[in-house]
Amino acid sequence: MLGIFKEKLVNAPKELNSPASLNSSNNKPKLSHEILHNFMSNNSSNAFCMNFGHDALLAYSPLNQPSIHQRLFSGVDNIYCVFLGSLHNLSMLNKQYGLSKGTNEAMFIIEAYRTLRDRGPYPADQVLKELEGSFGFVIYDNKDGTVFVASGSNGQIGLYWGIAADGSVVVSENLELIKASCAKSFAPFPTGCMFHSEHGLLSFEHPTKKMKAMPRIDSEGVMCGANFNVDSQSRNPMMPRVGSEANWATWG
């Protein structure tokens, strides 16, 4: 999976961008089209890409061999989702949302996102806490031009994010692709967290706490992006409920 989103769409944490990326002579960050070329050339012939103008793209390649973790892609009403992993309680969730039994995880995530975007009755952190299993997903809402990323709390699905040469945010589960694409400007996407392109990073496990950036130092002693952890000494306002403008699409 690969998502690339231009800087004007995504307000990424500034700590992701390492000055060492520009100073390295061996490994410099790549431009978006170079990253996409690498992804497509290194994956199976059934990999595909969707471009949304010049601002966003999603690329996807199905698994070539059986795995307990799925890769799924779905698009409904101009909302697109790449989902990695599996939800143990999908049947219950589909019933709760009034969806058919054949609805897979990616389709469910889109429906849940759309419900919450359109002033659903639950805050986003509560919805994500109800997802039982291993998951990581990226949503691009082409109607609103927004990006939503989340990673499950058990850490079994690892996502990574970084900054490309043109300032775009790159998201993938492929660590080697992220390293080659973003040089020193990358980090693991924090587990138990969700990110919205306009309003930033939030822990859905601890929604009342702020996130704190901790510098990452690589084996060469160079600063390499940042890890993001929950700041136990901080406090965020509670996420507003139904009737508020704040939800998956517009919390803040």
Rank of each mutant, 00 (worst) to 15 (best):
V138H: 05
H199N: 12
F189S: 15
T146F: 02
N229C: 13
A150G: 14
F228H: 15
F108R: 12
F137C: 12
K8F: 03
L16N: 03
P190F: 02
T250V: 09
S153V: 12
L2E: 10
S172G: 11
F48Q: 14
N229F: 10
A124R: 05
V169W: 00
R241L: 13
N94F: 00
S234P: 14
L202T: 13
P215S: 05
N89Y: 04
F39V: 01
K28M: 09
K14V: 05
G158Q: 14
L16R: 02
K6T: 11
G221K: 06
K28W: 09
I217A: 07
D231G: 12
S234H: 12
K8D: 09
R114E: 12
F195I: 01
G145Q: 02
I139G: 01
I178D: 08
G167H: 03
L202E: 08
S151G: 12
S134R: 01
M50E: 07
D218N: 14
R235F: 11
G225K: 09
S61I: 06
S91T: 14
Y60D: 10
S21P: 06
L159Q: 06
G53H: 04
Q126E: 14
G192H: 13
C81V: 10
S61C: 14
M50H: 06
S18A: 08
H54N: 11
S219E: 10
H33V: 06
G120N: 02
Q96V: 09
S86F: 00
N154L: 04
E105P: 12
G145F: 01
S197I: 00
G120F: 03
N42P: 01
N26Y: 01
F195P: 11
V149T: 06
T103S: 10
Y80P: 11
N142G: 09
V171M: 10
A165M: 05
A56F: 00
G225S: 04
V147Y: 01
L202I: 15
F137E: 02
S203H: 01
A59M: 05
N229G: 08
W251M: 09
E132N: 13
